[in-house]
């Protein structure tokens, strides 16, 4: 949709900033790492919610599953730190995808609001199960293995790991949105009956879309568990009330159904959230709640959605001046 050259400049600028920031602001490495995780949250939510029109409130499930799967493998499989971490992340991705495929077969037959409501219970149920299951520490949570390097090395390592994962997610989505997959899920969003009437394998595309979300969320979960060092079942892994809601809001704030929208939305949201914590301590939740209301009321289309509406030519939406179709009124 957007030309190569116009994408390249912001991408290079972001890349340069990403490399320099952790060294300029070493105290903020965890918050900066979370910025990348937030961008990933918004991007993966938008696959379903924005591009396909299926609002999912259950995506946090895959984040939590990934976090636990990775941590269990690191704890029990007996590998050294780094091999254990990489195998754990791989397992987290695979496990999340399998769960998404199984759940998708059941839930993706639901349409519209019914699907949204159906997914609402997923994160809550998973949080309850995790906090009652002794094998993964139950309510007292799990501690991830100690990072081997020097003190502070953990933050730097996982900052860059989150950065790379967010960038890979972005590039993969950019690539698959440009092809058949992207248009197929757009078609499902715009008119699912028509898509079926044209012979599209709608169920297959929907399931695959959820699996793509789950894949990246699973890996992100594995990374975040290690970044924080401690996994709480309800407040970190299956944090539906915070991350689960944030991923929806960030995508909406930036502009649903666009590639850059979730990136912009997540950045704006995360920075504001950190500012509220710093300057409005005690009132940060109230401020955040008000921000959410303002987003939904004043930016229902999001930042990029607003720009697209006002400057459609920038997005390639234009009429050609040729008159060869004068008869089509």
């Amino acid at each position: 949709m957007t030309a190569h050259g116009r994408n390249l400049v912001p991408m290079l600028a972001i890349g340069a900033a990403a490399l320099v920031l952790p060294f300029l602001l070493p105290d903020y490495r965890i918050q900066l790492a979370f910025l990348w995780v937030m961008i990933l949250f918004a991007l993966t939510w938008d696959i379903m919610g924005g591009q396909m029109g299926y609002n999912s409130f259950g995506n946090i499930l895959y984040f939590g599953i990934g976090m636990y799967v990775c941590a269990v493998i690191q704890r029990d499989a007996g590998f050294d730190y780094f091999p254990g971490l990489f195998i754990g992340l791989g397992a987290a991705a695979i496990f999340s995808v399998v769960i998404a495929a199984v759940l998708g077969a059941g839930l993706l037959g639901l349409r519209g609001h019914y699907f949204a409501i159906g997914t609402l219970g997923l994160g809550i149920a998973a949080g309850e199960i995790a906090s009652g299951w002794d094998y993964i520490g139950a309510g007292s949570g799990m501690v991830t293995p100690v990072f081997p390097g020097e003190i502070g090395g953990r933050q730097t390592f996982f900052y860059f790991a989150s950065f790379v994962l967010a960038v890979v997610t972005f590039l993969v989505l950019k690539r698959i949105y440009a092809g058949r997959f992207g248009l197929a899920i757009n078609a499902i969003r715009d008119d699912e009956d028509k898509a079926e009437a044209m012979g599209l394998h709608t169920t297959r595309y929907k399931t695959v879309a959820w699996c793509v979300s789950a894949f990246f969320l699973g890996i992100a979960g594995g990374l975040v568990g290690n970044l924080i060092g401690f996994i709480d079942p309800r407040d970190v892994a299956f944090a539906g009330a915070t991350y689960g809601v944030f991923m929806v809001l960030m995508a909406i704030l930036g502009g649903k159904g666009t590639l850059w929208g979730p990136v912009i939305g997540a950045t704006v949201f995360h920075v504001m959230q950190e500012v509220f914590w710093t300057y409005l301590l005690g009132w940060q939740r109230v401020a955040l709640g008000l921000l959410i209301v303002v987003i939904v009321v004043f930016f229902p289309q999001g930042i990029l959605g607003w720009v697209r509406e006002h400057f459609p030519e920038r997005f390639g939406i234009r009429v050609e001046t040729a008159t060869d179709d004068a008869d089509a009124r």
């Binding site: 197929a184 757009n186 715009d190």
Partner: peptide, 17 residues
């Protein structure tokens, strides 16, 4: 019934068999 929020060309592309 067309896919309203994508362009005509994109409507055509996704209509391939």
């Amino acid at each position: 019934r067309v896919y309203g929020r994508v362009s005509c060309m994109q409507n055509m592309r996704i209509s391939t068999p």
